[in-house]
Design a protein around this nucleic acid. Structure first.
Lengths: 340, 340
DNA sequence: ACTGGCACTCGCTACAGTCGAGTGCCAGGG
DNA sequence: CCCTGGCACTCGACTGTAGCGAGTGCCAGT
């Protein structure tokens, strides 16, 4: 399978033209728009090879060629350089993100920014609890038999749970519990808390034990085990750009997939390598998204990663541009988090 | 404009048939499917009158009739009874809403439930801060010059803000401030706090005054004035039901509108009368939504209203059914809130 | 006031014909 | 051996025509 330089150049040209025009591209148009230095006939021969290898295909006999998912993959891996951001884009990012008042605000601004810059659907995962540490745990009495447990994480996330106590607990006891819990848990990574919480239940004075047990249950079950992930979404209207051509005319499966947090988390949340990930078309494990591509990366203060963010769009998307934007936004968000 | 009983019956039949079949309905089909007791020709005459009055229209000469927005309006106001919920639906509501762990959970479950039951786009507003009272204000030191201000409202909402202090503040002072603030503000409606906060700044010991001033600014600016509203959305995939027939083939404007929280708030947040509100097509003030209808109502514990919820779909929707569902869900959510 | 009958409208579908972009292949030339 | 120009071919897109049929408006009759 000799793919010499020219054939690769042809593939690159096809991808670029198709992405920008959204129309199958023919040999003549190709040699006109790119300086390939050869005739249409030669390009046709190259195209035949590329098609045989599965990088491009013809929608119908006698139409131009269109890249396949495999073609995009090759393009992304070997034929494109990450496009540097324009100064205007850099400015947009900074302007958009300064002045955020809290984590919610940061996440919302980020997701809208991403959607606006890439003109795709943007997805941002809130900092994962699993990767957060406890900054403070607050107990707020609601009634004598009810507490609100508020957990503030170092990433800025705040989670609250209503706790139904086994019996009335005087205010002084609540104060004691608050102190004990924070002494033990403050600073601990959430994933490390289970043994600490166990120890707490045992160390606590006997009269506080039932209450502490209840608190421990809530803490472990709803905050640690079922690690509650949150997701923000924006730019779904961008799915309708390009008429009905992308997504073969039906947004349905895409919209359905976007409603499933589990799916979105899988898409952008798997941040083992800190590099940018590109999923193209049927590389995706969800059938609903086999007509879509996802560009995602992790973000976090400094070198650590606390969550993921990315964009989703038609396989026919501007990969170099979107990769650049996703990376840049992730870096800015990371810096923002590092400040807090 | 004599609209006798039979003409109204014809209009009702047209609306019902069109809603269920999505096809313009002709005189013959009408008499076949409904027991009108008259011939097609008579129905045609009635239709001519209805058309003249603007209640129905023909997409083209020689096609069946379709209700106009005005026709739907008449139908909703005078020709339909709220459809009682099926036992299955009642059960679905109860099953869906029990076991919610916190406000976020309640809201998320509610919005998904609504989307599922009505098969439309569902929108739920979080309890409005403007209508909430302060239950507790917590100050959590992040560093010596930074506090996290956490406000817990009686509706279960929890809002946090990072506060940059003018200078280092010792832990004891934070404790004092916390006590003072809560003594003054706990229990107050958020809309009543501005004078209280002012008073606080003046009453506080001089050494705490700069800090208190900063806190007051954050409190007033980000929690009271710019009353932060939150919205949850679900079921956008339902917009694609009925192919491209609804929304004249373009989901674009709808999706755009749904991304604007301001728009959504206007739609479901204006809850002056505690009754169910129905906005049909161009009754809507947003151009983007002139092809859509909205059914909304307020909800809250007991008789008070703390927020709104509703559904949005094509003007061709099952109004009686959706009105019933929206009301029922609102009532259940109200009960749920009353328990907490 | 309702009904049956009738002519008319007009969107939809099928079909045939034309056009043209794009292709595959082949023979010839550097 | 690779590239090129030429050529026949394919097939989707578009156009125009014709027939069908659902649905209508109107009118005369009961």
């Amino acid at each position: 399978m000799g793919l010499d330089d020219r054939k690769l150049a042809v593939l690159r040209a096809i991808v670029e033209d198709y992405v920008s025009t959204q129309e199958p591209v023919g040999s003549k148009a190709l040699v006109e728009r790119h300086q390939l230095g050869v005739s249409p006939a030669t390009v046709r021969n190259d195209m035949a090879v590329l098609e045989e290898e599965g990088y491009i295909r013809q929608p119908h006999t006698s139409a131009g060629r269109v890249p396949t998912d495999r073609g995009y993959r090759l393009f992304v891996d070997r034929l494109s350089r990450v496009k540097p951001l324009s100064p205007a884009e850099r400015r947009a990012i900074e302007r958009f993100l300064v002045g955020a008042v809290d984590l919610d605000d940061v996440v919302h601004r980020t997701v809208r920014l991403l959607a606006q810059l890439t003109r795709q659907v943007a997805v941002v995962q809130y900092p994962s609890l699993a990767r957060s540490s406890v900054r403070h745990l607050e107990l707020v009495p609601i009634s004598t038999t009810r507490l609100m447990l508020v957990m503030i994480a170092d990433t800025g996330r705040v989670e609250q749970r209503l706790v139904e106590l086994p019996g009335p607990v005087p205010a002084d006891d609540v104060t004691d519990l608050r102190r004990l819990i924070n002494e033990k848990l403050a600073g601990a990574r959430l994933s490390d808390t289970p043994p600490l919480v166990q120890a707490l239940v045992e160390e606590v004075p006997p009269k506080l034990r039932p209450t502490m047990t209840t608190l421990a249950t809530v803490l472990l079950e709803t905050l640690v085990e079922r690690h509650e992930e949150r997701i923000a979404l924006a730019g779904t209207a961008n799915l309708t750009r390009g008429g009905l051509l992308d997504f073969q005319g039906s947004l349905r499966p895409i919209l359905e997939a976007l409603e499933e947090e589990v799916v979105l988390l899988k898409l952008i949340g798997e941040t083992e390598p800190s590099t940018t990930r590109v999923l193209i078309g049927d590389e995706n494990e969800f059938d609903n998204l086999r007509a879509a591509s996802v560009v995602s990366t992790g973000y976090g203060p400094g070198a650590t990663i606390v969550g993921g963010l990315g964009v989703l769009g038609p396989t026919r998307m501007d990969y170099p541009g979107n990769i650049a934007t996703v990376r840049a936004v992730a870096r800015y968000v990371g810096e923002l988090l590092a400040q807090n």
